[in-house]
Design a binder for these strands. Structure first.
Length: 438
RNA sequence: GCCCUGGUGGUGUAGGGGCUAUCAUGCGGGCCUGUCGAGCCCGCGACUCGGGUUCAAUUCCCGGCCAGGGCGCCA
């Protein structure tokens, strides 16, 4: 069939129930499985929300239709018109007796992987044929949860006075330091893909927007090859004026709780498909001082010295000690970026924090430096050139309020909700060291 | 980038210096009126690439590419 014509879906699979007995309906979707028993054919039609059984007893339907049904290829797109029949023998207690079958698009055979999941496929195979992989209920569940998660985050932040903003991903400068950037050609100049909206959301504080958030991709050109890193991820970023680290930690904690609550309430089926028993954690989240963390990690037999960032071994040691979400506070100023404010009394200690889930860092944030001269000094202290930050620094010379903020990795947050251990699972089309397609 | 392991039908696997290369799933055909991982019968389909050793390499050795795991890198 080249065109849909008048055909329109009347119901999704999950909307069909035994109370609709004898009702004429039209379902659309993919042929998940066909079981041809000779005198009766069962076709499992799958749509976004699940499966519905099309039952065709030879005696009850026309021969042409019967023959057409037995020849459908798996994963073809079909529309079926028929009558609902409640039946205790049918899965879900309900089935459809077909009167019309429309093959909207036939699928090639054999399939590059098995959407019924009788034979598992490796992630590499799955990502190559991601469109098919995503037809599996256990895979689409991840993205339904991600959708709910992002919606929940937006609703929460809007309710708390945050305005959604968009900042450029094409940036001029590679001078923020730290991570490697992807260079690109910008007409006659070199430019880069943004590693973080950090400097822009701070400029917005000087603009008087008070509270802003952005949910957008960030790019990191690191050659990392782990289950927790990708080269393109979605960052959930906030920045808040007239707040310090404690205030924004509180926002973050409430956001995490609200999101988990929403996911447990709205994604029951998806969590079940994933075998995930998600519980709303108790609050407040434990706060561990960096100084104490050093002792905790050392006590596990993992060497770490004061002033060091956490090695993977150190993170794992913490993962063994801690269960669920917790903050790490009081990081050494030395290992934090220039825009992080230090404690007044003890300048070697910063007002920066990380939010961890077991052994996984999911967010980091801080009270920011809001005084121009101090910021210049800090930039110099990191061996960077203040001249490259001219436009950023200008925002600090004409009334920059004290402010704080954080960035939360959307995929890593999703991993904590779904219980997945490979970040690739949480991105539709992941970008890693080797993969640039599809 | 480093270390370890691996690459066998479309998919997931077993195996292994010479024999028709194992199994499951799938695909094609046939039988079957209640399947729900349907069942039964017949058939189809594979040793990552390059070089080396050898009478003989899918198997052993070296290298490439790719993958899995671990680490590093990741303001």
């Amino acid at each position: 069939m080249n065109s849909l014509g008048d055909l329109r879906r009347s119901h999704y699979s999950k909307e069909i129930n035994p109370d609709m007995n004898d009702e004429e309906i039209l379902v659309m979707g993919w042929t998940h499985e066909i079981r041809d028993l000779g005198g009766i054919i069962f076709v499992l039609l799958r749509d976004r929300d699940g499966l519905v059984q099309i039952t065709a007893p030879s005696k009850k339907i026309e021969t042409d239709l019967f023959e057409k049904l037995r020849k459908i290829k798996k994963e073809s797109v079909i529309a079926v018109k028929g009558k609902v029949q409640g039946s205790p023998k049918a899965p879900g207690g309900v089935e459809v007796i077909p009167s019309q079958l429309y093959i909207l698009n036939e699928s090639k055979q054999p399939l590059p992987l098995d959407p019924t999941e009788k034979v598992r496929a490796e992630i590499d195979t799955r990502l190559d044929s991601r469109f098919l992989d995503l037809r599996k209920p256990s895979i689409s569940a991840i993205f339904k949860i991600k959708s709910t998660m992002l919606h929940s985050v937006r609703v929460f932040l809007e309710k708390n006075g945050y305005l959604e903003i968009n900042t450029p991903k094409l940036v001029a400068s590679a001078t923020e330091g730290g991570t490697e950037l992807f260079p690109i050609t910008y007409f006659e100049r070199e430019a880069f893909l943004g590693q973080s909206p950090q400097l822009y959301k701070q400029i917005m504080m000087s603009s008087g927007f008070d509270r802003v958030y952005e949910i957008a991709p960030i790019f990191r050109a690191e050659e990392h090859d782990t289950l927790r890193h990708l080269n393109e991820v979605i960052s959930i970023d906030i920045e808040s004026s007239f707040m310090d680290q404690h205030d924004v930690m509180d926002v973050l904690e409430k956001l995490v709780i609200q999101t988990i609550t929403d996911v447990t309430e709205n994604c029951e089926t998806e969590l079940e498909v994933l075998g995930r028993d998600l519980q709303v954690p108790e609050t407040p989240f434990e706060k561990i001082e960096y100084d104490d963390l050093i002792d905790m990690v050392n006590s596990k037999g993992v060497p770490i010295e004061h002033g060091e960032d956490l090695s993977r071994a150190a993170e794992k040691a913490m993962g063994e000690i801690m269960d669920g979400y917790y903050f790490i506070t009081g990081w050494p100023t030395e290992i934090k970026p220039f825009y992080v404010l230090h404690e007044e009394e003890t300048p070697e200690k910063s007002q920066a924090f990380d939010l961890m889930y077991k052994d996984l860092e999911i967010s980091s944030g801080a009270t920011r430096v809001h005084q121009h001269d101090l910021l210049v000094e800090k930039i110099k202290g990191k061996g960077l050139n203040p001249e490259s930050f001219e436009r950023y620094l200008a925002a600090f010379e004409y009334g920059m309020p004290p402010h704080a903020g954080w960035g939360l990795g959307a995929e890593r947050f999703n991993m904590t909700l779904t219980g997945l251990n490979n970040i690739r699972e949480t991105v539709l089309f992941p970008r890693d060291r080797r993969r640039l397609t599809p």
